[in-house]
């Protein structure tokens, strides 16, 4: 309330030009802050991705779930994949490893006109043990879109760019945007998985910070 009064007095004590300058200045400050926030968010999401032993981008987490048997976790993972990746190709290896191939859309970044800019193919793996499970998303391959004659954004046929090699093929700013969106997608997928897995289980704290360097052979 007090700040509102001060603002009112400030405006009343100024000429129309002074008021305009105040609003102009506030607008500039707001835009700068919004820009900083946007860059910070993009940077934070990009940093969610680590690199594995083969220098491939990976989003990797191990989640402890005490009092849960492997079989019960396997059943839950099966249900989750059936619900969240209905149309995707799902493979079960052995009795506890699941693999899904899917893709998500990316959008043009840092522009007022938002439209699809491409899609990212990925592989999601989930593996279960007694009292814990792990999941990781990797094999990210970007396929750029172009605007076709019907005004639709569709894949450019035959162009597939692994994100690890994209720096030589894509504009730096565009690539940063795609990495940020990939990180955000991975985090969201992980959040959805964890929320599903703790249903009817006593909550256990997950390892929420992905490792910066990942060795996937030991867990």
């Amino acid at each position: 309330m007090r700040s509102d009064i001060n603002k009112k007095n400030y405006l009343q004590g100024r000429s129309p030009i002074g008021g305009w300058l105040y609003i102009y200045t506030m607008k500039r400050i707001f835009l700068v802050l919004a820009g900083i926030l946007l860059l910070y968010t993009a940077s934070a999401q990009k940093s969610l991705l680590a690199q594995d032993e083969n220098n491939k981008y990976i989003y990797y987490q191990v989640v402890d779930q005490p009092n849960a048997t492997k079989d019960s976790l396997v059943g839950k993972v099966n249900s989750f994949l059936h619900e969240a990746f209905k149309k995707s190709k799902r493979i079960q290896t052995g009795d506890s490893l699941f693999t899904v191939k899917d893709k998500f859309l990316t959008y043009s970044a840092f522009t007022f006109a938002k439209h699809e800019s491409g899609e990212v193919d990925f592989v999601l793996n989930i593996e279960c043990k007694d009292n814990k499970y792990r999941y990781w998303l990797t094999d990210f391959v970007f396929r750029p879109y172009y605007k076709d004659r019907y005004g639709m954004f569709v894949p450019e046929n035959g162009i597939e760019i692994p994100l690890e090699k994209a720096s030589s093929k894509l504009d730096k700013k565009d690539l940063e945007g795609y990495l940020a969106q990939t990180g955000a997608y991975c985090r969201q997928t992980g959040d959805n998985l964890k929320a599903f897995m703790i249903q009817n289980h006593q909550f256990s704290k997950a390892n929420t910070q992905p490792a910066r360097r990942v060795v996937t052979k030991k867990w």
Binding site: L105, H115, E119, D148, R149, F153, V154
Partner: peptide, 24 residues
């Protein structure tokens, strides 16, 4: 190049895509 798949948008996103604005 035409790409007459008859599809509006693709991908795995379950949500409806936003209003898309583009041009040149």
């Amino acid at each position: 190049m035409p790409a007459d798949t008859g599809k509006v948008g693709t991908g795995a996103d379950p949500k409806d895509p936003p209003l898309i604005f583009s041009g040149s």
